[in-house]
Design a protein around this nucleic acid. Structure first.
Lengths: 180, 180, 180, 180
DNA sequence: GATGAATGAGAGTTCATTCAT
DNA sequence: AATGAATGAACTCTCATTCAT
């Protein structure tokens, strides 16, 4: 990588960092490209030179972020933890992270794009497959259903859980409300 | 009710309907008051005469909507259904309804206001209390936890479920992922 | 005057009072007809029924006010005071009064209209004539000049003088800055 | 100064000129930023990029204008003219100039800001001090009073005097109405 | 290639005035 | 005759995007 590319790489990271931080604070429609450019010490024009539009810029930032997140997930999946611990770890890996996946849902989910969504889906399929192999997920629940179930919990955890609530929530995950 | 009041009432409903529909389609920040006014066959100025600000207009619309929704819930709670059926009915009462409670979370939840949130919370408390009396909700789960759990499911159902998935989701609600 | 006319008269006075008070507080362009109507416990439509336009309404209000003011001036002119005392009295009669004659000058002076301005000019002519007769205003100063001079002082006094400054200002009026 | 700065400087001047001219013609609240932008051959957005708000734009324009005006005054004060001639020159330097200092008083005086007002006050103090030294302003008149007196005349001259009236007005300034 | 400046299109909001009762 | 409701036109201001250097 030559000097030009390194510089571009660095600016891209600054832009991503600023965009990410401001997105969380104010939400997609309330952050202006000018603000992001200012926070990244870059000209607004540079943002457009790099990404074309505001939307595209956020899309790339989110894909970048999602790739990093998925790397963490994969690591957890490959670890030596027991299966329930893995699930817990995955869910807690989200906690306190990008809440905007919830907040400006329509905007942001659409931005996240098919590629990232597909990657995430594939990770889920592996996670579920492993769960079935290890006997934690009964066959009678269809993949689609379990995926939705997992997703629901992930979203809940993304909003933030205080640690004292994490444990009981996970118990509900496995055993539900009925106590018998 | 005289002519003036009837007319105003009617226009208010038109505005609420237009606002609700457009809010779902595009989200809070992407809908302009002009669009809503046009859809409601009303001048933008009228919207401001009625509600003062865009924000206030949505707040009142949401409160109105929430009151109607709560009325349905109460009716279900007072019905002769078995408890699990009641829960199911409450959840399905949301399906296909106002998705925006999720989508522009920051904006809209804030708009919903304390009054409505409190009303909803109180309904939940009654629902949970009844569940405990009838033995469906064990004492060992704190109110706070159950409320969060219910909320999580409600939110999931709000996004829409096809009926074939409703049943298994409710099974998970009571018995969790574990199948033993 | 029958009942209808009395009612109209009363409403007109309420409107004038509200308009006058709000004009002083906020200035011509920052007061809306709706505000005035509200303050006068009257419908905005009534204001337009009576006066046609906002501008016309203020014009009539100002003419009304000016007529009352001129009546006071005439009384002073006809009184038995010494001439310099009369001048002083006229000037102080303005103090603390309608400052807007200064503030939104362009708007308001234009509103005041030719009729009122002419009445005021005529009063000044009488005042000056009397001053000449009594030897206080030398012939070498043209009417036009003296009128302007008086006006300048009147405007100054309209902005408000604290009583301790009134006396020296009047001394300057007669003897100027030179002290010999 | 590079190309960017020159261009910005030029546009700023165009905006100031347009704002000044239109302010005199129509008064603060009746001039829209759009009008000013059009007259300055600039986009309305540019005005807001430069100054943030309409108010701030006028404030800066007035400060700019006042600085130039004060420079003229200082030059007169330092000149070799006799004191009365200096006073006359200062007053005539205003003639035909910014009448709005009178007209939208509330708005504009507030915009002029403390800085400019303070600069003007300081110039007045110097002018008065010089007048005392040279024996044209007797000690028995307090600074405050003289300042007000000067101000009153300045305001009068700002409204415009035809030259034939300037001389007698200045005679009144020194000797008042009394002729003895 | 990167920037600071500039902008067009549109946002929310206000208000003098008119309309329907 | 008087009103409450309704509005069109205009306002200040924002922002994603483009232009000129």
């Amino acid at each position: 990588m030559n000097g030009f590319e390194r510089r571009k790489q660095k600016k891209t990271e600054q832009i991503f960092a600023a965009a990410c931080s401001l997105l969380q604070k104010y939400g997609y429609s309330k952050v202006s490209v000018n603000e992001i450019a200012a926070a990244a010490h870059v000209s607004p024009a540079t943002v457009f030179n790099y990404f074309g539009t505001k939307e595209q810029m956020f899309a790339e930032m989110l894909e970048d972020w999602m790739d990093k997140q998925l790397a963490k997930y994969e690591e957890i999946l490959e670890s030596s933890l027991a299966y329930p611990e893995k699930l817990k770890a995955v869910m807690l890996a989200e906690a306190g992270q990008l809440k905007f996946l919830l907040e400006d849902l329509r905007d942001v989910q659409h931005l996240l794009g098919n590629r990232s969504e597909e990657k995430l889906r594939q990770f889920f399929m592996k996670l579920i497959a492993k769960g079935r192999t290890e006997g934690y997920i009964p066959m009678e629940f269809a993949d689609e259903l379990v995926q939705r179930y997992l997703n629901m919990y992930l979203r809940e955890f993304r909003q933030g859980v205080d640690p004292s609530q994490a444990e009981p929530m996970l118990r509900l995950f496995f055993y539900g409300l009925s106590n018998t």
